Computed example of a mutant assay.
Amino acid sequence: MSSIDFNGIIPAIAVPFNQDYSIDEPELRRFSRWLAGQPGIHALMTNGHTGEVFSLTPRERAHVTRLTVEAVGDICPVISSIVCEGINDAVEQAAMAKEAGARGLDIMPPHHWLRFGFKPEHCIDYFTAIGKASGLPLVVHVYPAWTRASFSCELLAELARSPHVAAFKIGTREMNKYARDLKAIREADPTKALLTCHDEYLLASMVQGIDGALVGFASLVPGLIHELLEAVRAGDLKQAMAVQARITPLKDAVYGGGEPTGEAHGRMKAAMARAGIIRSATVRPPTHAPSDKELRAIDEALLAAGLTVQAAA
C-alpha cells in the first residue's frame, strides 16, 4: 500500500519564520533539503506540533508541504499532518496536502475529543473517510494515555487492521500502556510500522522493539537520533547509552521534565538557530521565545552534544 519506508528516522520539521511571522520560504527550502540528506532520514513530516501547526492556516499548511516537497525532490517523501475538527474539513485538508505533493498523512485526533472524548466508531469513521478520499497511507497519531483522546489497545488493533493505515506514531507516554499498545498492534498486523514519538525519552521507548522514530527532536539532532536507533538495532546497549548521554542534556534544556509543548518547541528552535541549523529562532504567538536563563542552559547543552558549529550548509 505504502511507497514510504517508515523503518527509520522521520523528523517532524520546524518551520522558519521571518521577523514579521511570515514563512521564511528560502530558509524552509534550504533547511528541508539539508535535513532530508542527513543519514538515516526516511521521510520528512510537515505540519506537526514542532511545525507550530496551530499557528498556521489551512492554506499555509498546504504551502509548507508544497515548499518542502519541492525542496527535497527525490531525496525522500514528505508526510503531512492533518489536524481538524470534523470529517469534511479533514477530507478537504487531506486533498490539499495530496495536491501539494504529500505521499502520506499523519492523522491527529480531532481536538474536541480531548474535551468531550469519543466513541471507537467515531475514530474508525474518521480514518476510513480520510483514507478512502485521499488514497494515501495514513499514520495514526497516538496521543498520551492521560488524555481523553487516548486510544485503547483494542481500538489500536482495529486501526492496525485497516487497509488505510500504514504506521503508528506512538506517544502513549505511560510505559505500561505503551508496551501493551505495541503488543496489540503487532498481533493485529505485524506489517504496520511502529514509530516512537517520545522525544523526551528516546532510548527507553526504542528498546521496546519499534521500527523507527517520528520526532520533532530530529529537526535538531538527526544524526544523534540515527546513531541511537542504529545502536539499539545492533543490540549495543553500551553504545546506545553513550549516545543517549549526549542527547540527554539537550533534551533536558529543550523539554525540561515534561513533554513537548509550544514553549519547548520555541526552545528547540532557539537551539537550532544557535547551532546554525536555521537562520532565525522566531516563533509565532502565542508561543514565547526562551528566557535568558533557558538560553544559557541551551548553550551548555549544545556544547555537551558537540553542536556549537555551523551544521547546515
Rank of each mutant, 00 (worst) to 15 (best):
K269Q: 12
Q244M: 13
S205F: 04
A204K: 03
E294C: 12
G8P: 12
W146M: 14
I247P: 00
P286L: 07
A305Q: 09
A43N: 09
F54L: 13
D252E: 10
G266T: 05
I82F: 08
I107W: 02
K132F: 06
K293S: 03
E121K: 12
F31E: 11
N176G: 14
D181Q: 11
I4W: 08
I82K: 03
N88C: 02
A304I: 00
R180F: 12
K98L: 05
E121Y: 13
A273M: 11
F31D: 12
M206N: 05
P26F: 06
V215H: 01
G223L: 09
S205L: 02
A95Y: 03
Y21Q: 13
A289P: 13
A97M: 15
N7T: 10
P144T: 07
E52N: 12
A289Y: 12
T308V: 13
Q19I: 10
R29Q: 08
H112E: 09
L114D: 10
S291P: 07
F116M: 07
E52Y: 08
A167K: 04
L224V: 03
Y143E: 15
H112P: 03
A253E: 04
K177Q: 14
N88A: 05
R279T: 06
M268D: 07
I225C: 10
R115P: 00
A94L: 09
Y126F: 11
E92T: 14
D20Y: 07
K192R: 15
P26N: 05
W34H: 03
A193C: 06
R233M: 12
I210C: 03
E25R: 09
L295Y: 04
Q208A: 09
I107S: 05
R33K: 11
P110C: 04
T50H: 07
V142S: 10
H265D: 15
E70Q: 05
L295C: 08
G216I: 04
G276A: 00
V78W: 11
